[in-house]
């Protein structure tokens, strides 16, 4: 089992710069939304696809834009499982937990990934490389069990095939890292 303990190499920007980026984004993106309550969810979705997650600054900016209390935005966002409040890992691993996947053993695929990655579903590894997620149903039940890695759908998974995919990514990452270091030297 490989535990990812290395600290993230990506630089975390300061708080003010996130606020600036959010303001900048909303100045342009805001034009295509009406300033009505029904824009809350589409705005949150647009923000998440821009920033990868919803930092507090986004909620506050959207609240100012729509002239509603930030609590209202938080309230809506927290109801829906699509929204994330922490930066996702570089690679997103999603295991389908639909019925067809369940009866064909997706629970064991999740167990295996949990062990291998050292994180529970909906968590991100400490090195920021992997986020493990489960979803209710991807809708490709005929190919159950399903795993989606960075948008690519892998059908008919077993614990072993899922682990192999992880090993491949992890290997590619460490090679790339190694290359970076050599470049730096």
């Amino acid at each position: 089992m490989t535990k990812h303990t290395k600290k993230s190499s990506r630089s975390s920007s300061g708080k003010s710069s996130i606020a600036q980026r959010v303001e900048q984004w909303l100045r342009i993106a805001g034009n295509s939304f009406s300033k009505a309550r029904e824009s809350i969810i589409p705005l949150l979705q647009a923000a998440q696809s821009e920033f990868g997650f919803l930092p507090n600054e986004v909620m506050e900016a959207i609240a100012r834009f729509l002239r509603v209390p930030p609590a209202q935005i938080q309230g809506v966002a927290s109801f829906y499982s699509q929204f994330r409040y922490e930066a996702p890992g570089k690679h997103r691993v999603t295991v389908c937990r639909g019925t067809a996947c369940h009866v064909r053993g997706s629970g064991r695929v999740v167990d295996e990934l949990t062990m291998w990655l050292g994180i529970k579903p909906q968590e991100t590894s400490t090195d920021g490389l992997f986020t493990l997620e489960t979803v209710a149903c991807v809708g490709s039940c005929a190919l159950a069990p399903l795993m989606v890695v960075d948008g690519k759908v892998h059908g008919r998974q077993t614990p072993a095939t899922a682990r192999k995919t992880m090993e491949k990514i992890s290997m590619a990452e460490s090679e790339a890292n190694h290359g970076d270091k050599e470049d730096a030297v």
Partner: peptide, 11 residues
Amino acid sequence: DEGDPGAFMDR
């Protein structure tokens, strides 16, 4: 909003 796990007709 086809949410039933195990259903993909609408998709």
